[in-house]
Nucleic acid binder design. Structure first.
Lengths: 144, 144
DNA sequence: TTAATTGCTCTAGCAACTAGAGGTTCAAGG
DNA sequence: CCTTGAACCTCTAGTTGCTAGAGCAATTAA
């Protein structure tokens, strides 16, 4: 049985994060030692490694929750799993496109800067006046 | 003088967001009408447009705060401005790289799926076992 | 045995907003 | 002039996925 610290080392997930996952029911309530410290078996280790890997791939916790409940029921068709992965792939692609557009414009801005004073700085100018830029980075910077 | 609703329409920034920006001192306290409603002149319109554009480019609010205070002092050299933009460009590039790696792996996972049951679903399998994957998507999904 | 480390719970904070409750003011139509 | 409905006001709390800190108890190494 692993302590929370050893589970943390084994998976690369930080200790408070493990407790947080338990709190939001992504991990089951841990067994406890005589002194009330959490103890983990190999099942939880696997489950946490799964979560960790999915997080690294950018899946939000709610989708991971779905994936976990699907993987608990191995006889089901895996269409639902695929759908989630496809959705995630689409989200990643959308973000890449947006970011590529931003990169282009940032580069444009920087290339035009003659590095004088702020008064005639292209960067400040472009930021202040949308007409001057390569246009069409839509709303919503949080969807990056 | 514009009402908050009209300022919102003019800039594309939502009404509660404008109030939020005032709260965190990104916008100055607005003048008020007889009935205590906010009124805005062209200066604030410009400032908000600047903020909006910078947000669209992915700048975090704290960097926008810096950019604004730099642009208030037009006689300074614009090196500091450039530095912020360069930093932002680097952050965007890093995110693109990471996302591209994730895309690759998601695609790999999906291609291998023979779409049977969950029991032999490659997606679930790869998520559960890191050895099976293209490796080396580091920690920190939040830096996407 | 004792000191250092690790563990516990609980609360609060981060970014950058968004949503909702519950009330006031304004502009237009009748 | 009056009424109705939209737009405005303040305030609190929620979102996502953690992270930090306070103030303790338990475990482990020297």
């Amino acid at each position: 049985m692993l302590s929370i610290g050893n589970l943390s080392k084994a998976t690369g997930v930080k200790v408070p994060t493990i407790r947080y996952y338990e709190q939001i029911d992504l991990l089951p309530e841990a067994a406890r030692s005589a002194g009330n410290q959490r103890l983990y078996g190999p099942k939880t280790l696997e489950r946490l490694a799964f979560i960790r890997h999915a997080r690294d791939l950018g899946f939000p916790l709610e989708e991971i929750r779905e994936l976990l409940s699907l993987s608990d029921d191995p006889s089901q068709p895996c269409q639902a799993v695929d759908q989630i992965a496809v959705r995630q792939l689409a989200a990643v692609n959308a973000r890449i496109e947006r970011l590529a557009a931003l990169r282009t414009e940032l580069e444009r801005m920087l290339h035009q800067c003659r590095c004088g004073t702020v008064a005639d700085c292209r960067v400040i100018e472009v930021l202040g006046n949308h007409e001057l830029c390569g246009h069409d980075h839509g709303t919503a910077a949080d969807q990056l």
